[in-house]
Structures are given as structure tokens and as C-alpha cells.
């Protein structure tokens, strides 16, 4: 109990909070989720093979049309085909999700390892991380996008920076507990250099929780992108994302609910399946949990 009060473990709690019923973990749910996610990813990647229109081609005379045989999901306020945009939009949303997850994990891993191993750097790094965590993620992200101009890269960075502290804390706590382990002490005693120890012994230990954290970051990045677009700080309408398709459609929500419904459905299904897979991955990869279950 004592240990649980340490702030460092709050990220584990967050993970714990995201756990699912056990039967789901081991049963059909993750498989269905996996297939669904696979289907969404394939559909967005293979969009050029089956969509009927160029997602960027505007026709001013065909704005805001209801679904028809030509426009399966109708058209948006620029007269562009919604069906094509929803699938192309998924590509960018997923790219932002995966990009944000990879970048925050990579940066968080490096910073966390440094903080975990070097006591002098630790204090400074953790104070900065505490400060970053105290700034609401959305506000920080809007400010960062407004600062650097809206592009896919800047949106990824803006979503990443508020996520980094959580990853750093996670990595650091694993390192701190692992460095007391006999095998690391032994390696140090045998004269292995620090970087080598880091790579050989600690990286594998941090990978499992990081993969899990990565899936959650990916899901939340896709949502944050949607909110950034909603607040007018998203990427260009020439780069469709689920977020900006919804943001552009929001003024028409009452007249053409489809403008929000379809991208919203795709986005929600996608996040739902990523979260379910994250939960499964967490259970499979977390050795402590396995022990407990046994």
C-alpha cells in the first residue's frame, strides 16, 4: 500500500483503470477488436482501390448533398465526396495516432532511462516533467500548434509533448526498481558500461509496459487531433482526417448529421478496438500480472 502512494506509480494505475473483464481479454473481444482494427487499417490503406471520387475534388454546385448512388455518404460543405474522405481521412488520423505513440515512446524512453540512471539529472528532469503534466494537455497542444503552424508533423509533436511525462515516469520507475535487481548490480560489478547495461538488461523490461502505453497514446492522439480540429487548430482541409472532417461538418450537425456521424463512427470504432487490444496486450505482456493470475 505504501508503495502505491508514490506518484511514480500513477501511470500504472491509469493502466489498471483501463483493464477489461477477464473473459474479454482472453475471449472473443480482443479477436473481434483485432479484426476490426485490421479491417479499418486495410480499408484506409486500400482506399484508392475502391473509393469512387478524389477526396479533394471540389464541386461547388454539389455541396452538402444527401447520400446517393453517386455519393454513397453524400458530400461535404465543399462538395467533396464524404465516402472517399472518410477512408482517406482514416489514413492521416491513424498516422497521427501511430506517429504520436512512436515519438512519445521514443523520447520518453530516452529521457526516462537518463532520469532513472543518473541521479543528478533525475531531479531536474522530473521537475520539468511534473511541470509539463500540470499544464492541461489540450491547452498545451493548442498553443503548440498555434505556435508552429498546423501540419501533420506539428500536430504529432503537439500531442506528443504532453504525453511524454507519463512515459518518462513509467520508464523511470521500471529502471529504478530494476537497477536494484541482482543481475544489474552484477553487470555493473563486472564492469559493463552504463549504455550497455541499459540496452541489454533494462530495455527489454521496459518494452512491455511501453507497448501497452503506446496503444493508449495512439488512441488518445486520434481523439486529441479531433479536438484540435474542432477548436480550429488542426491540419489543413486538404489533408482529410476524421477530426477535421467532423470539425468541418459540425456547423451542419442538425441538418446533415452524417457529416459527423460517419467519421465519428469510424473514429470511435477504431479507438475502441485499439483500447481493447491495448488491454489484451497489457495482460499478455505484464509478467507481474501473470504471476498474480496464476
Amino acid at each position: 500500500m505504501e508503495k502505491a502512494v508514490q506518484p511514480a506509480s500513477s501511470s500504472q494505475w491509469l493502466l489498471g483503470a483501463l483493464s477489461l473483464p477477464r473473459r474479454w481479454r482472453l475471449g472473443a473481444a480482443p479477436i473481434i477488436a483485432g479484426l476490426l482494427l485490421l479491417a479499418i487499417v486495410l480499408a484506409t490503406l486500400l482506399a484508392p482501390l475502391f473509393v469512387t471520387h478524389d477526396p479533394l475534388a471540389m464541386e461547388a454546385t454539389k455541396r452538402l448533398q444527401p447520400p446517393s448512388s453517386e455519393y454513397l455518404l453524400g458530400t461535404d460543405p465543399y462538395g467533396r465526396d464524404m465516402f472517399s474522405r472518410v477512408f482517406y481521412g482514416g489514413r492521416v488520423s491513424l498516422l497521427i495516432g501511430v506517429g504520436a505513440a512512436l515519438v512519445s515512446i521514443a523520447l520518453g524512453l530516452i529521457i526516462g532511462l537518463i532520469a532513472g540512471f543518473f541521479r543528478t539529472a533525475d531531479a531536474i528532469i522530473m521537475r520539468i516533467m511534473d511541470s509539463l503534466m500540470a499544464i492541461p494537455a489540450i491547452l498545451l497542444a493548442i498553443a503548440l500548434v498555434a505556435l508552429s503552424g498546423a501540419s501533420i508533423g506539428s500536430v504529432i509533436i503537439a500531442i506528443t509533448i504532453p504525453e511524454i511525462p507519463r512515459v518518462v515516469r513509467l520508464v523511470r520507475s521500471v529502471v529504478l526498481s530494476a537497477r536494484e535487481e541482482p543481475y544489474v548490480e552484477a553487470a555493473t560489478a563486472l564492469g559493463s558500461s552504463m549504455p550497455k547495461i541499459l540496452i541489454q538488461h533494462l530495455m527489454p523490461n521496459t518494452m512491455a509496459p511501453l507497448i501497452v502505453q503506446g496503444t493508449y497514446i495512439c488512441a488518445s492522439a486520434i481523439l486529441i487531433e479531433a479536438i484540435l480540429s474542432f477548436l480550429g487548430a488542426g491540419v489543413s482541409t486538404e489533408i482529410p482526417t476524421w477530426g477535421n472532417i467532423m470539425a468541418e461538418g459540425r456547423s451542419y450537425f442538425q441538418l446533415n448529421p452524417g457529416l459527423i456521424f460517419w467519421p465519428g463512427l469510424m473514429l470511435s470504432l477504431c479507438i475502441l478496438s485499439i483500447n481493447l487490444i491495448g488491454d489484451t496486450a497489457r495482460d499478455l505482456l505484464d509478467p507481474r500480472l501473470k504471476k498474480r493470475e496464476a
Binding site: L20, R23, I227, F230, M246, R250, I260, G264, S268, L272
Partner: peptide
């Protein structure tokens, strides 16, 4: 645990994470 009540609560709680706030508001 592991009854319909459990699944209902958990379904809701996964959904709550998966829908953008503004969509819920609308």
C-alpha cells in the same frame, strides 16, 4: 463480476473513452 451487469458497465466505460467530447455534447 463476469455477468451482464459487469459487461454493461465495461462496455459503457470503453465507449466513454472512444467518442469525442463534442460529439457527445451535440
Amino acid at each position: 463480476h463476469r455477468t451482464w451487469a459487469d459487461y454493461l458497465v465495461m462496455t459503457f466505460s470503453v465507449l466513454g473513452f472512444s467518442i469525442p467530447v463534442f460529439v457527445i455534447g451535440y
